[in-house]
């Protein structure tokens, strides 16, 4: 397995270089270093001299990909792309364009993101699995059909609707929780309850539909019929046999997102005023801060790759027949 993981890590390197290249090209296709300088220096009374000084101080006075005037290998190394990319591979995220330490900011802002994302993920998973197992139990009945229709309706509704509706109902009309905001420690609980509930409810439609499909497929197999024939209760059949055997497709979708929970949710954080990494990324895009955008895309890619590797490893844990080699 170690050789497999090592090989996957090696495969990841070209993927990360490609992601890096794409991010870089897309960002500088939309924003030139002059635009960035102008934005950071303010929109009034910005002189060309000030732009030149800012670019030099932030390393944006070099060519993007190829430095024709530099000697030898410096043609490639004395470029914005090289200077900005190499350190990322040792997780040195550098400084944002307004001078802040990106690594430190990420380490501070991942906790609010996790405070929302982790409970949403765990509670959501439990709720989706429970509901879909219940629908499988009542398969081909009105309850099942009604549930599927409701799930389709719920997955057709925009996330924004749940957010605004949740804020309206629970914060404005019922006045049970604050509309938005955040605090540290235990005081954070009253702020995260609503975003977690909204996150869970907004995912019920798609989650339940997906897991129901997995469970239905398993429940029609021979071993399930055998279990029923043995006289096992339906609950035991579903939870001890169907659920266990449906874990592989579930894990495919679940484990891969676990590392990405750090990245946060753009919409939830924005509407609920959560100072997490989702809003950090949005702010960086709006303020044309290449340092942060670059770091966050890179981090997202790394975490996704880690998630894929973890998924593969988890297969071996739930299914002894699977061997990584």
């Amino acid at each position: 397995m170690i050789a497999y993981i090592f090989r996957r890590i090696l495969y990841a390197i070209p993927i990360l270089i490609g992601v890096n290249l794409l991010t870089f090209a897309l960002f500088f296709f939309v924003n030139s270093p002059d635009d960035m300088a102008r934005f950071h220096l303010g929109l009034k009374r910005v002189t060309p001299q000030a732009i030149a000084v800012w670019k030099a101080e932030h390393g944006y006075d070099r060519p993007l990909f190829y430095n024709a005037v530099a000697p030898g290998v410096e043609k490639l190394t004395q470029t914005i792309f090289y200077q900005r990319s190499v350190k990322l591979f040792v997780f040195d995220f550098g400084r944002s364009d307004d001078g802040r330490d990106i690594g430190y900011d990420i380490s501070q802002r991942m906790w609010p993101s996790l405070a929302i994302a982790l409970p949403t993920f765990v509670v959501g998973l439990a709720v989706y699995i429970s509901i879909s197992l219940m629908m499988v139990f009542f398969r081909a009945t009105y309850l099942d059909t009604g549930g599927v229709v409701l799930a389709v309706v719920m997955m057709s509704v925009s996330m924004l609707f749940y957010v605004i509706g949740g804020q309206y109902l629970f914060s404005k009309v019922l006045r049970l929780v604050p509309i938005s905001g955040y605090d540290t420690g235990l005081s954070a609980i009253k702020f995260v309850i609503l975003p977690i509930a909204v996150g869970v409810i907004s995912g019920i439609g798609s989650g339940v539909r997906l897991y129901r499909t997995f469970f239905l497929e398993e429940s029609s197999k021979e071993y399930v019929r055998t279990a029923r024939a043995k006289g096992l209760s339906e609950i035991r059949v579903l939870f001890s046999h169907v659920l266990k055997n449906a874990m592989i497709p579930i894990l495919t979708g679940v484990v891969v997102v676990i590392p990405s929970l750090f990245i946060g949710s753009l919409i939830l954080e924005s509407f609920f005023g959560i100072p997490g990494l989702g809003s950090y990324t949005i702010d960086a895009i709006r303020s044309q801060d290449f340092g942060i955008v670059h770091a966050m895309v890179f981090l997202g890619s790394v975490l996704y790759i880690v998630g894929l590797i973890l998924t593969d490893i988890s297969y071996t844990l739930v299914d002894p027949r699977v061997r990584l080699g």
């Binding site: 804020q167 914060s171 604050p178 938005s180 924005s270 509407f271």
Partner: peptide, 16 residues
């Protein structure tokens, strides 16, 4: 000073 990114929460909190 609290950060409010969206107008709806800002306005509702003011009304409260």
């Amino acid at each position: 000073f609290s950060l409010e990114r969206e107008g709806i929460p800002y306005w509702d909190k003011f009304l409260q």
